[in-house]
Nucleic acid binder design. Structure first.
Length: 242
DNA sequence: AACCTGCTCAACCGCCACAAC
DNA sequence: CGTTGTGGCGGTTGAGCAGGT
């Protein structure tokens, strides 16, 4: 009564030895949020950084817990009595706007990463008009490696750290959606320094740091493992990755 | 005890890419 | 080069459960 597909699913998501089920740690939560921001809903790619977790598990956890948690946090940021001025300003903004802003922040982070990864390319560096730039499609191997570097020090020892998912086609490309959109890469850092990155016309763009509740949540003890946190890496300076 | 509601998570579905023919 | 089979993925569903009324 079972097809091969169904059996495979059962094996990979349930029977396979070495998988951990339930009880996501705070650390794992944050890693998922980070990776989701970087990779989008590419659960298989995200799961490749968490060998003990299945993509289905991570997807479920995102859909049932984290989505709601982030939503709650955004609501708290809107209404919190002792919210920071930045948050207070958000409180008077319609929720939809805040969500759009969050999306913009995520897009910005992705763009910065994309910029960083693009240095992998051996293609000529001659600048091209944005409209003529081919969609960015790095191989997963290269992107996984680079993302693993971003995650160095963030993950606990022994948690993998760049296990490339071999032969995973869907994982093979970090999405280039929105790659042609106008973009300026800025990202806040935990220490409050301003991150600068290039806009599409090559000019440097800067932005004052503004930590949201969500960002604070991501930054707090997640970086407390003595290593360099993901967000400690100035995304706007991709040259240091390589 | 019966009913309702919300949550969790394994399983299903449709789509896509690739290999074999 | 087109067709078919298969594997892998992300999105979605629904059965089962717990807690509340």
């Amino acid at each position: 009564m079972r097809c091969s597909k169904s059996c495979r699913l059962r094996w990979t998501n349930y029977l396979r030895p070495g998988i951990k089920r339930g009880n996501f740690t705070h650390q794992e939560e944050k890693l998922i949020v980070h990776l989701q921001a970087l990779l989008g809903n590419r659960w298989a790619a995200i799961a490749s950084y968490m060998p003990e977790r299945t993509d289905n598990d991570i997807k479920n956890y995102w859909n049932t817990h984290l989505k709601r948690k982030l939503k709650k946090m955004s609501a708290a940021a809107d209404n919190g009595p002792d919210a920071a001025p930045e948050l207070k300003s958000r409180a008077i903004t319609p929720k939809g706007q805040w969500e759009r802003r969050l999306q913009t922040d995520i897009h910005t982070a992705r763009q910065a990463l994309r910029d960083a990864l693009s240095l992998d390319s051996s293609t000529p560096t001659r600048p091209q008009p944005p409209a003529l730039v081919a969609p960015f499609k790095p191989t997963y191997a290269s992107s996984a490696e680079n993302i693993a570097r971003l995650l160095e020090g963030w993950m606990r020892p022994g948690e993998g750290g760049g296990k490339a998912s071999s032969g995973s086609r869907s994982s093979a490309s970090v999405s280039a959606e929105g790659a042609s959109a106008s973009h300026s890469g800025t990202a806040p850092t935990p220490d409050g320094s301003t991150v600068t990155s290039k806009t599409e016309d090559g000019r440097a763009a800067t932005a004052a740091p503004a930590l949201s509740m969500l960002e604070n949540w991501l930054f707090d003890d997640g970086m407390g493992h003595g290593g360099v946190g993901l967000m400690d890496v100035p995304l706007g300076d991709p040259s240091q990755f390589f």
